[in-house]
Nucleic acid binder design. Structure first.
Lengths: 199, 199, 199, 199
DNA sequence: AATGAATGAGGATTCATTCAT
DNA sequence: GATGAATGAATCCTCATTCAT
């Protein structure tokens, strides 16, 4: 068993275990011991690496947000038109790698956590701002001043599908979520009647 | 101080205090003692009336759902057309009496709770089914087979606005929520292009 | 519902309910509320009549001891010889009215209670002394100085059958208990070899 | 102060403390905190090692039964005749190491516990069966079919002396208990009159 | 690096008991 | 006489966190 260079491995294992445990428990009521055991180590070691429980949560949140950011960038890479970029955001949001039960459940719980921990709130705010900024940036050329409204609608829709997936009453699969959000996108893109009346 | 017939008063006080505490704490990590103190009684009395903590939560949830149901029914009363009824659902969802910080926060947390407690899940499922059924019923005459898709979009939008209000990063006020969801409604109501192409 | 002269009825009901509850629970961990409910009244009333929980227990114990005393006296009435009187004690001990599951269980628990409460200990001591005194008195004419030893054996045997009935591993029925204890009695009555050698 | 390999030490300390506390209190109404303090540790540690209170009790019971089993085996070792083996059982039962106030009191309380906890009942049943089986095995060559009856008598006598020692009204010391039970043994061993009449 | 040992603080729950009506 | 209302005190148990090794 190697004794050096374990830190990044241990941290990663703990982060994965955290997401997994939260997902399985469906709540933040997960003990450090549980997480540590799932990560194959003692709870003392978890504390050694992260200092305190909320730091573990924060790291897990960061991990998820980072993974999400990667997918967004990857999808955006080949998108050349505003419409294509918007579509890439929606597809990224419901990417099958992200839109999985444990991660969805973790998301919901991070939303809760954000109400408690300023750190978590800040992290979430960064993500929210980036999403909003991306949406508005791509909507502006298409709908002008309505970009802000449309961005809010799309953002709410994404969150809505997430939360509904979390509870699982209405079975929402990634494909449906993409289809329905794209449908909404295309419906809100066309100019308003007042604008069309000019023609 | 009256000493008889206290039960309903105490129960109501506890339910109110529960919603309040959850709202203030932004989480379900609220002790029975806190709730009881906020309701002006000992924790022992809270247990006397509700038996256990989750029963208090459940009662609070029921209270919120009942209040919501009342608003929906009240709004629906004067709505004669399908379009008007749909609008009434959206207006009820963001009714200023319901769409208040503590209740919004309580909602978010009940979504979490629903992942843990079967009772909570059942309660939420009833609400979800009723909303969905109402939406589809009113959408059918307007959009035919697309009713199911549209209902999912609207339901997700409502949940999305709620969750966003809960975290409060994007300040969503009731008026905006109503405006944006009505905007979306009107955008998704018109027939699809494939349908118009018949003309 | 009569409002006067209830006291003796209430007290009796509570005493019966106490024995019943202890028997059913198999332990003294019975709440006043349980007892009161079983007796058809509120726990407050139970306190009103008995003052405190251990007084209820004590009253129940007294009731059992009194019942036992009655049976002993009744059985002794027609017994004219020492041997017949001894037999009457053993028969009374395993009288089908006394040797019933709830009462047996109550007995066992009163033995425990006697280790805690001086009042209970005193009560039990009275019963023990009377039993011992009766046994010795009737054994003396038959076995002389060995009366004390024989009394101890018989008394231990009675307690032993009770405790074994309480746990119920070896199914002991009243008939067997009487038969075996009479068998023992007759075996220990005859003179010792040292005594017989004189003849 | 050693910091490794504490578990067996702690467990043993807790088991000893449990027997001691139950003995001193004369009842199972002993808190985990009391036991833990008597064992020189925090109640949290007691829970850490045993999980729950009844597991501590069970372990204490197992300890007593194991100790008793050891004494029985040791005494039986040198006993070559049935009569000697029977005597060894009785001597083991009242061995001065076992027949001490705290252990006797613990026994009485375990009898009560056995009425509540299936685990305790099972443990006690094992002991009861072994004792009964030993007694019958050794009585058979001496009294034939009467072995079962005689075994019941002796077993009841042992329990009886224990319970009487527990309450302590009649001061029973180990020597007397052995003497009286041996006396009984020798009295019930000789053939019945019906059998002797054959001669 | 890693862990078993250890605990203080806290929380849900129970219950005997009191009191106003 | 009778009870619902009310609570303080106690108890089991959990858990994040620290420490010695």
């Amino acid at each position: 068993m190697p004794k050096v260079g374990m830190e990044p491995l241990r941290r990663a294992a703990l982060v994965d275990a955290t997401i997994d445990c939260i997902g399985k428990a469906g709540s933040l009521d997960v003990t450090v011991s549980e997480i540590a055991k799932a990560a194959g180590m003692s709870s003392a070691l978890a504390h050694h690496y992260f200092g305190a429980k909320d730091q573990i949560f924060l790291a897990a949140m960061r991990h998820i947000l980072f993974g999400f950011g990667q997918v967004v960038r990857a999808q955006r890479a080949g998108a050349n038109t505003p419409r294509a970029r918007l579509e890439s955001i929606l597809r990224a949001s419901f990417d099958t790698e992200q839109f999985r039960a444990p991660i969805i459940s973790a998301w919901l719980n991070f939303y809760v956590q954000a109400q408690l921990s300023p750190d978590a709130a800040r992290l979430l705010a960064v993500y929210q701002r980036r999403l909003r900024s991306n949406l508005i940036h791509d909507l502006r050329p298409l709908v002008g001043v309505r970009a802000v409204d449309c961005a809010q609608i799309l953002a709410a829709l994404i969150d809505g599908f997430y939360i509904r997936a979390a509870i699982g009453t209405t079975p929402v699969n990634p494909q449906d979520a993409v289809r329905l959000s794209l449908l909404t996108l295309d419906r809100i893109l066309p100019p308003q009647e007042s604008e069309t009346s000019i023609c």
